[in-house]
Amino acid sequence: MDVMMCTVLGAGLAIGLGAIGSAIGEGYIAMNAMGALGRQPGASQKILRLMIIGQAITETAAIFALVMALVLLFGGNGEGTMKAVTYIAAGIAIGFGTIGSGFGAGLPGGSALKGIGRNPQNSDALTVQMIIGQAVTQTSTIFALTVSMILFTLSPELSYLKMAALIGAAFAMGFGAIGPGIGDGIVAKNANEAVGKSPQNMGLLTRTMIIGQAITETTDIYSLVVALILIFVV
């Protein structure tokens, strides 16, 4: 099998799968922006601004996938069967790994826009809360990117066991990042809805949201640990 073919396959997996989540998330934000516009046509400036900020941050996951796809396409010039396997594994890890947080980051954006639709006065509090929530939601993508990059730089010795372990690590991190990404998004979504209703509780809500998201990511961390064990220990 040609190594070149595998880098192209890896890059395709990375960006093809990686674009799914962000696309849905951004669509969700735009949908809620339309709803908010229908309610408060006078606040269209604020709604537009929040929508663009929200979509830009939701895009992060897809951008990480794009970066990894570019790295694979232009930097993937290793030799041998094992390098080919690492390139495919890197593509799988980042591709599946970005679905969750791409979709998840869309949820708080949508509920922030719903909040603006209810009361445009709260737009500053909602913007800050949305940005914090979305930023913490990116954690699972960051883990996936880490594992993907480690897989990309690895040059292991030729063995069937290592091959299975590398593909296993990619699946562990890739699928493992989907659930916590969406879960983080749900936490941030409800926190944003609560801020939209009562912005005076924002400090408390931000704190609870960050703790809730941190605990939601625990299974993501187990995936990271299993992936690192499969890469380095086996």
Partner: peptide, 19 residues
């Protein structure tokens, strides 16, 4: 999970910067 959460986030941020 407590210690790998910190490690993963800081290391991941560094890795994004390097890339």
């Amino acid at each position: 999970s407590h210690s790998f959460r910190l490690f993963g986030n800081i290391f991941g941020g560094f890795m994004i910067l390097v890339i």
